[in-house]
Structures are given as structure tokens and as C-alpha cells.
Simulated assay, not measured.
Amino acid sequence: MPDVATQTQPYLGAALDWVGMDGIEMSVRFDPGDGDVQRSSARVGAFVNLTQPDQRGIHMSRLYLLMDEYLSAKTISAPMLEHLLRAFLESHKDLADRARISIRFEQLIRRAALRSKNSGWRAYPVSIEASLDADGFHLDLGTEVVYSSTCPASAALSRQLIQKQFTQDFEAAKTLDHAAVLSWLGSEKAIVATPHAQRSVAQFRVRFVDDATLNLIALLDRVELSLGTPVQTAVKRVDEQAFALANGGNLMFCEDAARRIKHAFDADDSIADFHIRLEHQESLHPHDAVAYASKDIQE
């Protein structure tokens, strides 16, 4: 059968940075770090460069069949993806010398409640970007954590109003009655103001050192522990109270949150590089507060 992709184009010739497919529907297998390999529906992008200026195109069906062979049957890992990218180049010998693949899916992970014995599922978005070129093999793992952030400035202003209400309800010249103060603290009258908090999102992409395992759960645990207030699944009153306590003990601007995650990643020897984006979806403003951070690599 004729193959017009092999025809040369001497008058329109040019080498191309990347050629391939994106948004391919694929089944993938992934171990998030607990040994529980899940099969997920993914969207995949596969590309090689085109080094021959007069070559009309690449063999996209070869890339597709290789992806189907590898991703459907094998669990995603750094060695597996490197082998797949080498197979991409082998299938395009004399046409390409660089290859890359992107994989996006959601990973369900069971998360325990703060105080009760309950637990529930969280779906974490996962993005894996792998490339192979003259500089070697590189792999980045991206995901996000949703958390609550309580504004430190709003908390301070709220405390000031509570103090003001206290001075109005209890005269300074009179001896304080313990029972009366305790009752006042438990009333709605005492809490005349509350600090504003908002749902916030930490998006991050990390590059692991060579031979490091793609441990998603360990990465999520490190970030959620550094923030202190990740959103919850199953919640009883004891859990909600613990969450309120965690918010009160973790007041943060977006700058604070970015620094917390940066310090956590800097302390992890398995992470070679990272990029962080923090978004606090303001409840006070109609716009968001945003901060970025990355690894300081010394030349």
C-alpha cells in the first residue's frame, strides 16, 4: 500500500522540534507507593523530533502501538518509561534523536480522618513527563494538594475585636468570675469576629534523582504535613474540631505556604529539582493570591 509519509518534500523541507500525538486515550497501571497497583484511564502525549528536513512525516502508528504495548501491560516506572522512549527512537531510526511522553490521570488514595477511625478516598491528579535526548533521560512527577489557609492578618484583626468585646462585657474594676468568663467564651457573643479562610491549591512538579522510586504517597505526605491543613474526606464532629484547631495553629499567607513546601522539598535527598505554584482562592477578594517557588541549584 502507498505510504505518502515517506515521500520527500525538497521545496518545503525543514526539521521539526516535535511531531506526534496528544490526548491519546490509554489505560495505565501505577503504584502510588503502597504496593496497590491501580489501573486508570489516562490521556497520553507521545512525540519525537524530525531531524530530516526533506522527510514528510513520522510513523505515528508505531508510537501508538508501542505505547499500547508498554502502558497497558506494565506498571509505570522510570526504567519502563526510559525503555519505551528508546523504543520510540528505535522505531524512527535515522529520523529522530529525541523523544518524550506525557501521561495524565487521577490516582485514588485512601486518607484517614484526623481523629475518628474513619477514612475516605481522595482523587489526586497525576502528571508524568519523561524525555530522552543527548543529555540523557529525565522524568518529572506532578500533582497537587488542596488545603485550607487561614489569613494571619484577618486572625489578628478578629482577636482585636474579641478583646474589645471582652472589655465591654467585663468591667476592668471588677473581679472576674471564672464561671462567667467560661460561659462567655462559649457563647456566640464572645466570638464577634472570625478570620477568613479559603480553599487553597498547591501544585508542584518534582524531578527525582536517578534511581529514585516514583513514590506519590510519600510526596503527598511530605507536602500535607508541611501545610498542616489538607482537606478531609470522612468527617465527624471530632474531626471537624481537630481541623479547626489545625487551621488556628497554621495561619499562613500564600508566601508562608510556598516556603513550607520549599523547605520540605529541600530536605528530601531524593528530589533533584522542583517547581511549586501556590494559589489561595481568596474569600475576601474576588481574585486569588499566588506564590511560586523552585529549587535553588548552585552552579
Rank of each mutant, 00 (worst) to 15 (best):
Y124V: 04
Y124M: 09
P125G: 04
I128Q: 00
I128S: 01
E129W: 14
S131M: 15
D133K: 09
D135T: 13
G136S: 03
G136A: 03
F137P: 02
H138W: 12
H138C: 13
L139S: 01
L139T: 00
G142F: 09
E144I: 01
V145S: 04
V145A: 01
V146L: 14
Y147W: 14
S148G: 12
S148D: 15
S149I: 05
P152Q: 03
P152W: 04
A155L: 07
A156V: 13
A156G: 09
R159E: 08
L161E: 12
I162R: 12
Q163I: 11
F170M: 07
E171V: 10
A172M: 07
A173L: 12
A173P: 03
T175W: 15
A179N: 11
A179E: 14
V181F: 05
V181T: 06
L182R: 10
S183T: 14
W184N: 03
L185T: 08
E188A: 13
A190M: 08
A190P: 07
A190V: 06
I191Q: 11
V192C: 10
A193K: 09
H196L: 06
S200R: 00
A202F: 04
A202C: 14
F204S: 02
R207E: 11
F208A: 01
D210F: 06
T213Y: 15
L214V: 02
N215Y: 06
N215P: 05
N215S: 11
L216D: 03
D221C: 09
D221K: 09
D221T: 09
V223S: 00
E224G: 04
S226C: 07
S226T: 03
G228M: 03
G228F: 02
T229K: 04
P230F: 02
T233A: 13
R237C: 09
D239T: 03
Q241P: 06
F243N: 05
A244C: 07
A246D: 02
